[in-house]
Design a protein around this nucleic acid. Structure first.
Lengths: 198, 198
DNA sequence: CGCGTGATTGAAACCCTTCAAGTTTAGTGG
DNA sequence: CCACTAAACTTGAAGGGTTTCAATCACGCG
């Protein structure tokens, strides 16, 4: 058996979060491959068919699109212990409309398209947890849509701060703006306005 | 056995879309309850814990929030053959932030919180189809977020038209505006602009 | 140091909203 | 079937929030 020290956080995650039992752990762990990427490197680029999901062991990645005018729009951040992939592309086998790259030097495990089927077949605990992740993801996306159609930039920024309190210091402000759907200049002014209130 | 003529479309859906086999059909169908509601009646109101998912047999419902200023924001429409529920509330047992009501006189089947677990255990075909629905739902929500943070009202309206070509005639224009995150007046002007282009 | 990236600030332009008025459409009761 | 009414849609003008473009400032790193 190979020594894979870097992927240990994934084992811990399966054990403590997903409650996967000892007897199923190794079989699942045997399916994972470690990969490390530098800041700025890509895990997925537009036009590629997304073949893997990624679990972030260490570091921070972003999931984003680039529009016709060349502007980036960040759909999601993924720090440690988050799964990230283009579900549409991986599940339907279509070329992706999105990019995934590293904001920090990052370690991930790569999970091929059969991983979730196999792992849920092996461990009912993993199946339950995976379903929880899907439901929670949908809940978050709906909440974000609700804010985007109903709330102004200030409220969306405050919501972001409470939702991702730890990430704010790790990403440049212009990326936060991109996530919120506003320009860096606007975010700067929103922050200025908030400071003068308190 | 009871005669349930109204729920027949659900049986057909399970058979043709989800590819549920004959031998599993009745067991699943036995779990469903029919309910009909008038235009304007609610299936879910803010503050309630959502106890059921709904499958629309006939008619049209909307899933929406109301903000502090009393304005409605439509997160989703659900016409025939769509599932609708507040996944967050049903899965986590928390009071909902959303409303579901009928835009037309509507017939639904009610699926209690255990339905999906039981049905996926009974039929592996249903399990596969349910996963497809979840993945597809996430893909749609991500796409909508991407448009909300990166595209103007005109582009979002055109996307809406291609995504829901049949619904446009069935919902008042002010609801479409609410879905797009703009005012009815703005949508009226967007439409005027599009007419003068062609 | 100097360079590049990111953050801030200002002014003008733009998109969308708000408010108000008018028009059309749809539903209801006589 | 028409008349009436309420709701939905349109249009205009003014205002607000956000973007754009440009200039300046702050900082980290070679």
């Amino acid at each position: 058996m190979l020594l894979k020290p870097m992927v240990e956080p994934f084992r811990k995650y399966l054990q403590n979060k997903a409650m996967v039992r000892q007897e199923h752990l190794e079989e699942i762990m045997d399916m994972v491959i470690h990969k490390s990427i530098d800041k700025g490197e890509f895990l997925l680029q537009k036009g590629q068919v997304c073949t893997h999901s990624f679990f972030v062991l260490e570091g921070l990645v972003r999931f984003f699109s680039i529009d016709q005018e060349g502007k980036e729009h960040i759909v999601q951040f993924a720090p440690e212990n988050w799964f990230i992939s283009d579900r549409g592309s991986i599940f339907f086998g279509k070329p992706s409309e999105y990019f995934i790259d590293a904001i920090e030097p990052t370690h991930v495990v790569m999970l091929d398209s059969g991983f979730f089927h196999k792992a849920t077949a092996i461990s009912s605990e993993f199946r339950t947890y995976n379903e929880y992740l899907l439901q929670n993801h949908i809940r978050q996306l709906q909440n974000r849509i609700n804010l985007l159609i109903g709330a102004n930039a200030e409220i969306r920024y405050l919501d972001f701060l409470t939702l991702y309190p730890n990430i704010t210091q790790r990403v440049p402000q212009w990326m936060v703006a991109s996530y919120l759907g506003i320009t860096p200049e606007s975010l700067s002014r929103v922050r200025k306005g908030l400071l003068s209130k308190e």
